[in-house]
């Protein structure tokens, strides 16, 4: 299996406070990799390392290497804009832009200078189809995205991300603000999307990780306690702490 990210000895500090301690892992292409763990364990912090969203936080310092396609994404040679077009992100709270549905999806390509109306039309249509939103909204693409339901908004955000044809989609608790039906739609979507994309998902919900992921990493207090195939993690965890967590003894 091909490696997408090779993470080596990542330490992350918020000022004086160390939030990640010596994180090592490999993330494979065309797989769903889930990060689980209790609140404040560093899983969201870590996923934000993968597209350097932590750069936006003042006083945040990252040490170590994350190799993608032979280049450390934290090296000065890495262009951040280029990285973020290849590694897309979906956030916890659906955050559509206050514009039309069409403009939301066309936003990324337009920022890269794409003006061709035909191409944009095609990108918008295929992206919406991929997230199974096209049939629901095709007759109101010009209307504000704010008017969509929460679940639709989140699928729109995924479509917006797909419109950039990224290699990786990072999802930071994408269903925590959604109802069960919308959640299951997003989960189905993840399974569908992994054919074309590498998916990394942070989740609070262990059943969700078990349902959709191929690999699972268990985070605790800034460290990766254990990472393995999802089946193995949930049936034969090698670390006592993992077992305690997934059997609900804490967290």
């Amino acid at each position: 299996m091909e490696t997408c990210f090779d993470v080596k000895n990542i330490d992350l500090f918020y000022g004086e406070k160390q939030a990640l301690k010596n994180v090592n892992m490999e993330i494979y292409k065309n797989c769903v990799t889930a990060f689980i763990g209790p609140s404040g364990c560093g899983k969201s912090t870590f996923i934000r390392c993968l597209n350097r969203m932590n750069d936006l936080i003042e006083g945040c310092k990252v040490e170590g290497e994350i190799i993608k396609d032979g280049l450390d994404i934290y090296s000065p040679k890495q262009d951040i804009v280029d990285l973020r077009t290849r590694v897309g992100m979906v956030f916890q709270k659906p955050n559509p832009f206050p514009m039309s549905i069409y403009d939301n999806i066309a936003y990324g390509p337009r920022c890269q200078g794409l003006k061709d109306k035909k191409k944009l039309d095609e990108i918008v249509m295929t992206s919406l189809k991929q997230v199974a939103l096209y049939d629901e909204v095709h007759d109101r693409l010009g209307e504000s995205a704010i008017g969509l339901s929460g679940g639709q908004q989140q699928r729109l955000c995924i479509a917006r991300c797909i419109a950039m044809s990224p290699e990786v989609i990072l999802m930071d608790e994408p269903t925590s603000a959604l109802d069960p039906i919308s959640t299951s739609k997003i989960e189905d979507l993840c399974l569908e999307l992994k054919k074309d994309y590498t998916i990394v998902i942070v989740t609070h919900n262990m059943q969700q990780a078990a349902r959709i992921s191929d690999y699972t990493a268990f985070f605790l207090m800034g460290e990766v306690v254990e990472m393995d195939k999802t089946d193995t993690i949930f049936s034969h965890p090698s670390d006592k702490r993992t077992e305690n967590y997934i059997t609900g003894r804490f967290g």
């Binding site: 280029d82 973020r84 956030f91 955050n95 990324g108 955000c157 950039m164």
Partner: peptide, 12 residues
């Protein structure tokens, strides 16, 4: 969150 979404899409 909107700004983050925009930056995450590779906007400058």
């Amino acid at each position: 969150n909107l700004e983050q979404a925009s930056l995450a899409l590779g906007a400058t």
